[in-house]
Nucleic acid binder design. Sequence first.
DNA 1: CCGCCCAACTGGTATGATCAGTTGACCATA
DNA 2: TATGGTCAACTGATCATACCAGTTGGGCGG
Lengths: 250, 250
Amino acid sequence: MFQTLLKQSLSDAVYAQLRERILGGDLAPGDSLPSERLLCEMLGVNRGAVREGIKRLQESGLVRVRHGGPTQVLDFQEEGGLELLPSLLISEDGQMRVKVARGILSLRESLAPAVARQAAQQRNEDTVLKLRAIVASMRDTESADTLQQHAFDYWGELVAGSGNIAFRLSYNTLGRTYRKIWHLLRQVMADEFRDRDRLSALADAVAAADGDLAEQLAREHVAIGTAALSQLLDAYAESARIDFSQRPRS
Amino acid sequence: MFQTLLKQSLSDAVYAQLRERILGGDLAPGDSLPSERLLCEMLGVNRGAVREGIKRLQESGLVRVRHGGPTQVLDFQEEGGLELLPSLLISEDGQMRVKVARGILSLRESLAPAVARQAAQQRNEDTVLKLRAIVASMRDTESADTLQQHAFDYWGELVAGSGNIAFRLSYNTLGRTYRKIWHLLRQVMADEFRDRDRLSALADAVAAADGDLAEQLAREHVAIGTAALSQLLDAYAESARIDFSQRPRS
DNA sequence: CCGCCCAACTGGTATGATCAGTTGACCATA
DNA sequence: TATGGTCAACTGATCATACCAGTTGGGCGG
């Protein structure tokens, strides 16, 4: 099978390189970036490309740019937004940071029940239909990859059905993070993906507008994957990182 | 008193204007942006400024840029990250979107207990000291503004003490959103800010590593503000927006 | 010591040219 | 008809070179 060639613009490369330096700690908070003109030389690109890259750093809350003064690195732990999660989980050299992964698991565990409850309280009929359709599709397949995609879509529908834009945006960011370790999760969380009965019951709970039940079912459901992944992370606890260089799927 | 003059670079202005058009629905998903050269003319700026602005739109997940083709608007509900929350809460004309505000309240309600529990499980001594110092400061003042700042700092410490980077980044984004309606919340959530006893007990629970208790206390604590703000939002439910033009504090 | 000024930085804006990918109309071929 | 090639007219990407504007610090005169 062919893979789509990945093409990266210069400003993307500038952004990625500086971002990794900051997230990796090579550039500490308070440090000054080299001047734009100097960065041009160092990176061998035009100043416009450098500026575009820096604009994105600024948008991510990683640097503070001051007209006339040097551009300074900020403390991303204090200033960064959730959108940093994907690039924080997987470092430049393709290793997964175990501690970040644990944090994400906790976040998922906190949000999933609340999403389910709220979706049930909304009781959107369209949502129920879509959820049931997805569950039906999940029953029709044993392909791990298809199953995983359906499980992902299921939660996308549930989040949309909750009518909560804050949940939805959080879910989008989490999803982007999720994608970066997609093929790892396919194996590790297989049991959760096979938990179709509970997803079916959850759809019923939404249809019945039973918030308490939906919340409980969601809690039980995500606990399956949490347990599995936690166990894996524990095994790698001492190394603090998991090599993750090969990635057949983006 | 003087206010610091707000200076905005051209690319900031370009970004802000296009972002508001997208979030406000003037530019629908699938629409194409005018070409860069055309935008230059329309906005009366040079092309570099336009490109820098568009780079930030791209970083925010609001548009998709393709070399050779038109730049297209994405569906921010499906593609946007949590970092959109602040600009989504307050629209260009200074009105608060009630539905977004409700969503944020839910998110806070979901996260706060989990943060408290995890902070307790970590039982970082430094965190406990800082929490108690903040509570002590809160007992020393009746100034609504100071109280609010301390309450904000308290949660910042608790989130840091949880050792969970995913929580922390979420909190940062929520905090930025929070700041946009800072002076409204000062009045509405005054009761929560005066709930010093529970914050004190929460610090004790963290010191005792009692996760269950910490979670429960946090839940009760944020319920105070949630109830107050919910009530306010209900009153404005029919208008769906609250005018929010004046803002003495950034 | 204070205040002013100026030179040497820094980022911000402007202009115009060129490179490179996409699209669609057109046309020759099979 | 269907396929594939060509080409012009878009689009964004990159480059080079100015110049404007804010910040900083050193030196100089008071």
